[in-house]
């Protein structure tokens, strides 16, 4: 637990109290690896890339995968953001997402639904990728290459899920329209 009275900030220009107003408490996922604050969790995978052909396959596939990403990831309803990058001189693939709610209960639904898109990105790109056929094999692959964030900041409002945010924006809009109407 953060204790402002005993905490020594990194910079002398910031008070412990100021840090205390912002600081959050990360914890581990209920099941599996990954850090979480409130309802904002990180999923970070760093996997080896097939050499020498993987990188060019990825760059070609990235075009369609990008166009369709909002569909496959958006329809899951729990993903805030996702990035897929070639790193380390094209030797590795970084697949990193921020999500709300628990990952494990949904894993079969996610695999069944987003399987085509995930397969498209990983097959012939990621070495040893088993294909998205069974939840067990996919989880084994993930366990092999998932890493846990050493430092995690997910949001100033870590309790807000994607659906909460969509709803809040809609309500704010509607309320503003209402006030505008009353104003007239």
């Amino acid at each position: 637990m953060f204790d402002a009275s005993t905490y020594d900030p990194i910079s002398p220009h910031v008070t412990a109290g100021e840090i205390g107003r912002y600081t959050q408490e990360p914890r581990r996922q209920n099941e599996g690896a990954g850090s979480r604050v409130g309802n904002r969790a990180e999923f970070t995978l760093v996997a080896p890339v097939v050499q020498p052909t993987g990188p060019s396959v990825f760059r070609e596939r990235a075009k369609k995968a990008q166009i369709e990403a909002p569909y496959w990831e958006g329809r899951l309803g729990t993903v805030h953001d996702l990035r897929v990058c070639l790193i380390n001189n094209d030797r590795q693939l970084l697949f990193a997402a921020t999500y709300s709610d628990e990952f494990m209960p949904y894993v079969q639904d996610v695999i069944r639904f987003a399987g085509p898109w995930i397969d498209y990105i990983f097959t012939d790109v990621a070495e040893g990728f088993p294909g998205v056929k069974s939840a067990d094999e996919t989880l084994q692959y993930i366990a092999k290459y998932q890493i846990e964030a050493g430092i995690w900041y997910g949001s100033p409002d870590p309790e807000a899920t994607p659906r909460d945010i969509t709803k809040s924006l809609r309500v704010t809009n509607a309320f503003n329209q209402l006030l505008d109407t009353v104003q007239e």
Binding site: S100, D101, E102, P105, Y106, T161, R163, D164, K167
Partner: peptide, 13 residues
Amino acid sequence: QVWMNDGDFVGLG
């Protein structure tokens, strides 16, 4: 876990 102890699946936080 998903349907009883939480409401996000139906946008109820």
